[in-house]
């Protein structure tokens, strides 16, 4: 029993010549029961249940019967080309998309601080850039759906400018279109974080480095960016997590199409489990997708390590 929290050591009592008694304070444990219950009920049990399901073949619309198939579902996931290409699409969509958001956001934030001297104008521009982010995802998606049809506003403008209209929803472009819309809506988040990081850098660093004769480029590389590394890493992570679970715009704007051109893992997962009702297979897929996230996060933290 030695070493339990709340228990006094036997030896200690003996050394102090005290009568031996065991006192276990239980109140903290009682107090933890309700939240523990909730966590187990809505998080941990479903997770374990999903593992259980993933070893079975089960279509609840046909019969409640679950057929045990062992690790067959997992094997199938790795042979499922539709899943693998969805993963590749996500890599393109998130990798390129989030990088552009981060780059643009940082550039705009730095430009605001560097070139916009008037405090009022700066605030106004900042609010302007934040507006898309305030819009509900579904509303933004609906709005853009109307803008990008073949005879939509954007193509009309292109024609008016004497350019060729663009097939925004074509097989080749649809995923990129989604990415652009996401950039339009979410660049503001890294912008906001970068702006906060930039204005927290002491002005004396800039004064001193200018006196040392540093060019703007050198100051950016050696002072500004190193100072902003951690906040930017966090901005990247936030946006990457969002794009990892990205679903709303696909759902509304393309429904994974044309064909499977915009089918991202989350959407395919959703389809598998809730449209085709291959529940066991969907559970296996979501476990694999989840584990990839954990591994990815681990490597990201190591790369962006805070000293």
């Amino acid at each position: 029993m030695k070493g339990l929290p709340g228990l006094y050591g036997k030896e200690k009592d003996q050394m102090l010549g005290r009568a031996q008694k065991k006192r276990v304070v239980l109140t903290p444990y009682y107090l933890m029961i309700p939240p523990q219950f909730l966590i187990w009920a809505v998080v941990i049990f479903p997770l374990i249940w999903a593992v259980y399901i993933s070893f079975h073949d089960w279509n609840p619309t046909i019969s409640p019967e679950r057929t045990f198939v062992g690790i067959w579902n997992y094997v199938t996931v790795f042979r499922d080309e539709r899943f693998l290409s969805a993963l590749l699409r996500m890599l393109y969509y998130s990798g390129v998309g989030v990088t552009i958001q981060l780059f643009l956001g940082t550039a705009i934030a730095l430009a605001l601080v560097e070139y916009v001297r008037s405090e009022r104008l700066r605030t106004f521009l900042l609010v302007l850039f934040l507006l898309p982010m305030m819009m509900a995802e579904a509303v933004a998606a609906q709005m853009w759906t109307l803008l990008i049809t073949d005879t939509g506003t954007i193509n009309n403008i292109l024609v008016w400018l004497g350019l060729n209209p663009i097939g925004w929803r074509s097989r080749e472009l649809a995923l990129t279109t989604l990415m652009i819309v996401d950039i339009w809506q979410w660049t503001a988040l890294p912008l906001l974080i970068a702006y906060a990081a930039r204005i927290s850098i002491p002005e004396s660093l800039y004064e001193s480095s200018r006196l040392d004769g540093a060019s703007r480029w050198l100051i950016l590389r050696k002072i500004t960016l190193p100072y902003m590394r951690v906040p930017l890493a966090i901005a990247f992570l936030l946006r990457f997590m969002d794009s990892y679970k990205f679903l709303d715009k696909v759902f509304i704007m393309t429904y994974g199409g044309p064909g499977t051109a915009t089918e991202l893992p989350t959407f395919y997962l959703y389809q598998t489990a809730f449209s085709y009702f291959k529940v066991g297979y969907g559970a296996a897929m979501s476990w694999i997708f989840g584990i990839i996230a954990v591994i990815g996060m681990f490597f990201f933290w190591r790369l962006a390590k805070v000293q």
Binding site: S208, R210, G213
Partner: peptide, 21 residues
């Protein structure tokens, strides 16, 4: 002339250290 073109060196009251270097 901007500071970087004047070729002057300045020490401030509180030490200005370039972080991370």
């Amino acid at each position: 002339l901007p500071p970087e073109e004047r070729n002057v060196a300045m020490v401030f009251q509180f030490p200005v250290i370039y972080p991370g270097m």
